[in-house]
Amino acid sequence: MQVRIDLHNHSCLSPCADDGMLPSLLALQAMERGIEILALTDHNATENLDAFGEACKLCSIMPVYGIEVTTIEEVHLLVLFEGLKEARAYGSAIQETLPRRLNQAERFGRQIICDVAGTVVNEVDLMLSSASSLSFDEVVVDASKAGALVIPAHIDRPSYSVLANLGFLPDLPYTAVEMVNPTPQAWTVITASDAHFLEEVGIRSCILEMEEIGWEALKRSLGDQKNVRY
């Protein structure tokens, strides 16, 4: 079967994303754009994944519980989990490795935690746009050992990308790599919205040939470039 996937999106928890980017609106918009597997990947944070998971279920979308980690090299890396709990635990562990610098919401943007109805529950104090003390290599190796999907983000962008910051892709066990403009690579190449505003949801997605909609099938399908269309 052909399944439309979009594995890189932000919510109002990311300081750089729009405050109106509620997890539930992200799911609704994705549903309207025909996306059947959707990931939420806030910067160094997973606190909105609960609301996101609930919203996806209401929209009949398969949720992928993710985070966009900023490594010590200032490279953005998507780490995606099957389960909400493991993703939340991973997010907490990542936050332990961020500098103890507080966010200045008026300058960098609010970091809003909300429920599925969009009610503000809390805000994260720690500055989420900081870099973790973990290296790119250790995040890739440890997260893939833990069974996560590991995807270097927007590798063809001039900032916060592995190619800009590290010059070339270290030979590591990536699930795939994300590109804004896909070109052939040694790993499976996907594209994704990286939406920070509601109108950006679904601007980039890809169609995967999968046996069924599910975690193991997603993992298997991403293992081969032949399964991906843009």
Binding site: N165, G167, F168
Partner: peptide, 29 residues
């Protein structure tokens, strides 16, 4: 420089590189 793409493009040969990019890719570059 810390962006190795820039170092690759612009650093002169026979130079000493001041960087915080303590990654093995820095050696390759």
């Amino acid at each position: 420089g810390d962006l190795l793409s820039d170092v690759m493009a612009n650093a002169p040969a026979q130079s000493v590189l001041m960087t915080i990019q303590a990654h093995k890719n820095t050696i390759a570059v």
